[in-house]
Design a protein around this nucleic acid. Structure first.
Lengths: 162, 162
DNA sequence: TATTTACCCGACTATTTTAGTAGGTTATTA
DNA sequence: TAATAACCTACTAAAATAGTCGGGTAAATA
């Protein structure tokens, strides 16, 4: 099972895209600023997301990325799958050759777990995430911080220490 | 989320312990042979399992490890927790400081997922695993292989290629 | 058409984690 | 006291993660 910042970043970035999709394509540098993810790293992730047809790109000034389909047709599992190879909990990628060619003692348990995780993440769409209160609150805070800019933000942080 | 061979090995070893618990303590070298896990690595894992009071040890000849309580009172989640720090899917270990001190956009989603996984693995006891058909079959094969010994096993493998 | 914006791509790198080694010490039993 | 097996510390190779860097290429605007 592999679920690290790579998968988390991808979902976060896609959710950012969904949240800001009403004014044309969203540039990676915008996402980078709002979500504090390195631009080059985002480029790598979006290359994979594009190949899996989860986003479409628009080049040139004013360009960026757009979700390739409706918010309720994109699920978290698809995003994680696109950047990680899989959300597989087995060590043998389901091939049952975990113990020198044969099945290991706990193979079926990890298969069950993989299914469980996959089912859970397959049921959560971007639409659902956008509607959540906790997501809306964080998004609002992020928009506010970006408006302030870094220097102003630092001043406030410094002021709050006093 | 961290579920790698470390956690898988630990559960496999504990299940092996449960399967062979009827003739006194089980030595790590036995587990090492049956499950093909390096002895030194097993020692590291059992050090943690012992500290979490999941097993008790018996030193000296004929010694080994015993499960510290009944098979239906030890759950997979406890084993994985003992060797990994946690089955946490968040990047901030639940502290909500994922985005430079504040909560990141997808924090709550990963909390939900962590709960989901933990609940699932908390419901599976060693007892249940021991009863499963797939587990019994693999265990039987392993006992047979150990009886043959390595050299005999290689001969059979070689014969099967012809 | 020049310039800017932003996607696109491959190679490289520091850090961390995993998985495993090596070499010893302590306790128990035969 | 010899053998066995737990116990402990430190080290290490390999892999994965989380980036960086340096160049492209395509499209829009001025």
């Amino acid at each position: 099972m592999r679920l690290t910042t790579k998968g988390r970043y991808a979902v976060t970035a896609m959710l950012d895209l969904a949240l800001h999709s009403d004014h044309g394509p969203v540039s990676l540098s915008d996402i980078s600023t709002r979500q504090e993810i390195s631009l080059s790293y985002l480029e790598q992730l979006f290359s994979k997301l594009r190949k899996q047809a989860l986003v479409t790109s628009v080049r040139g000034p004013g360009g960026g990325y757009r979700l390739s389909r409706s918010h309720n047709e994109i699920f978290v599992a698809q995003i994680v799958d696109a950047v990680n190879e899989s959300v597989d909990a087995t060590g043998c990628k389901g091939r049952s050759d975990c113990q020198s060619g044969s099945t290991c003692l706990t193979h079926h348990l990890w298969c069950d777990l993989s299914d469980q995780i996959h089912d859970f993440l397959s049921q959560i769409s971007l639409e659902q995430l956008v509607m959540r209160n906790d997501v809306r609150q964080v998004a609002e805070r992020q928009n506010f911080e970006v408006q302030l800019g870094c220097s102003e933000k630092d001043k406030i942080s410094a002021a709050m220490v006093d």
